[in-house]
Design a binder for these strands. Structure first.
Length: 512
RNA sequence: CGGGCUGUGGCGCAGUUUGGCUAGCGCGCUUGCUUGGGGUGCAAGAGGCCGCAGGUUCAAGUCCUGUCAGCCCGACCA
């Protein structure tokens, strides 16, 4: 048996032989299911699921995690989808240092105030104390601002459109894998423009790109909108976000795009000589999404069986499982391997599970890992020149002829991608509440949904624009303003907190 | 960073109240047979300085102090 595994291991790119079982035993599984049902204890379910699906492990440093291969590959597919869109809109990648001099951080007042509490510092190197301590970057506005001031001389140098893929550090009080960790991976775009209009257009363009990626690649519907001043990025003039709804009804800010105005160009003296021969400060933007997206995928699509991954991002799109006793195995494998090759050659991320486990075991395990399609091939199938396809999103099981199997699988992957979006969209709509007018309404809504086991979800509300009203809602209900949506389904006319005329219609929700 | 709970083979736990001799159980793991279209069955094995550091004691998984980590709840964030 060990011989079989050794022989197959070199075919790493195709035949996938796991060294160990990931799942739990049947008895323990039923025990554990009791404590990790999504509907009963969402956060326990989340932790269980990401670990059983082998996405991550805890690292020996506070709040830090290891991205295991499946978790990291998800990130790689996220990167690919975003990077393609960035390049298509004229951006290029660069890389800036992780260590930022303290004096840089000080140059934008709000910025340092916002980030100071969560900065790790390097104070010593080579056994000697540093003259100036260095922060592990929480974001790179300051470093990039410094470089831009050197690089930008003329209007001909603009716009400057750069992005970097990097790790950043934020020493958070409470950490949660993927959603909030001390170190995380992200992408940060930084652009500089000659005019306010152009910079604002860039800010909104990147928000659109994030929304497009979230909806088309992640199958996660999002609401685009502007953040209220209290939720704004430290140092920004305007912050925009896309917000997704997790299966517990809470909101997750999945991406942000900031219009920074001239705040950083003044702090870092980023000027250009314009056509009229006068020096002007540039207008800058920054925008980012992080490995938080992995957490979003889990919490938007996952269920009590585990992960469910949209085909476009799934590390494994099709898992092939041979069926049948050893005497018949050879006959099955004669068809099995060519089938795998033809799928792989068609660009489908396919893997074969040839371990000596029973089929039922494998079914459960790959469902837990979120693989969109399972392909079974057994002796009966070989007789009938067919295989069995099983969808992760619906559980539907159908026989499929081997004649046109590649086209069939491709079609099914597309169908699953679309269906997952539709399901998530229906869930979002079902948990958006438009009829809340007052604090009393909101509190009744929360109480009644809690008492009947429903989700409080999101609530559309009027807001007068006063910070105090926003703070009051938060203090009394833990609901925070997610954003002021560009397209509100209904326009609210009175402020939920003070009943004065509303300036804005906002989405309120509990948030991660 | 405050309040509560938990740290015992890879995972989940019992044992701690009333210190005592070789620290148990289930799963997983190894080997062999068996089974194979929804978590097969049987048998024999391997595996633990009881989170870490001090202290009390003839004796500490068990008592005391400290510390670290994780979870839940509150104030800050992608």
């Amino acid at each position: 048996m060990g011989g079989t595994a050794d022989r197959l291991r070199p075919l790493w790119d195709g035949v996938f032989v796991l060294p160990r079982k990931i799942g739990k035993g049947a008895d323990q599984m039923s025990e554990e299911k009791k404590t990790s049902l999504q509907t009963e204890d969402f956060s326990a379910w989340y932790i269980d699921t990401i670990q059983k699906a082998d996405l991550m492990d805890y690292a020996p440093v506070r709040g830090c995690i290891v991205f295991k291969p499946d978790g990291y590959e998800l990130w790689e597919h996220i990167q690919a989808g975003l990077d393609r869109r960035f390049k298509a809109t004229g951006h290029r990648n660069a890389y800036f240092p992780m260590l930022i001099p303290e004096s840089f951080m000080q140059k934008e007042k709000e910025h340092i105030e916002g980030f100071n509490p969560e900065l790790p510092w390097v104070t010593e190197a080579g056994g000697e104390k540093l003259e100036e301590r260095l922060a592990l970057r929480p974001t790179s506005e300051t470093m990039i601002g410094h470089m831009y001031s050197k690089w930008i001389q003329s209007y001909r140098d603009l716009p400057m459109l750069l992005n970097q893929w990097a790790n950043v550090f934020r020493w958070e009080k409470r950490t949660l894998p993927f959603l909030r960790t001390s170190e995380f991976l992200w992408q940060e775009g930084h652009t500089a423009h000659a005019t306010q209009e152009e910079a604002e257009a860039e800010t909104l363009q990147m928000l659109d790109i994030y929304a497009d990626f979230a909806e088309n690649d992640m199958a996660m519907p999002v609401v685009k909108g502007k953040k209220t001043p209290s939720e704004r990025f430290a140092g920004a003039v305007d912050t925009y976000s896309i917000e997704g709804m997790m299966k517990d009804g809470k909101a997750l800010q999945a991406g942000t795009s900031h219009y920074l105005g001239q705040n950083f160009s003044k702090g870092f003296d980023i000027t250009f000589l314009d056509r009229d021969n006068t020096h002007k400060h540039v207008y800058t933007t920054s925008w980012g999404v992080s490995t938080r997206m992995i957490g979003a995928l889990v919490m938007v699509h996952g269920d009590d069986k585990g992960l469910a991954l949209p085909p476009k991002l799934a590390p494994t799109q099709v898992i092939m499982i041979p069926i049948g006793p050893p005497k018949l195995r050879e006959k099955v494998m004669e068809r099995f391997e060519p089938l795998r090759e033809s799928l792989a050659n068609a660009g489908i991320r396919v893997r074969a599970d040839l371990r000596e486990e029973t089929p039922g075991w494998k079914f459960n395990e790959w469902e837990m890992r979120g693989v969109p399609i399972r392909l079974e091939l057994g002796p009966r199938d070989v007789e009938a020149n067919q295989c069995v396809l099983v969808r992760r999103d619906t559980g539907e099981k159908t026989p499929a002829s081997l004649e046109n199997i590649v086209a069939r699988v491709k079609m099914l992957l597309d169908e699953i991608q679309i269906n997952m979006y539709k399901k998530a969209h229906a869930f979002l709509q079902a948990n958006c509440h438009l009829g809340v007018e007052s604090m009393g309404d909101l509190q009744r809504h929360i109480a009644s949904s809690e008492s009947c086991g429903a989700l409080a979800g999101w609530v559309l509300a009027g807001w007068c624009g006063d910070d105090e009203c926003e703070a009051k809602v938060k203090a009394e209900t833990k609901f925070t303003t997610r954003n002021i949506p560009f397209e509100a389904p209904v326009h609210k006319t009175t402020c939920i907190a003070c009943c004065k005329p509303a300036k804005h219609t906002v989405w309120l929700a509990r948030a991660y």
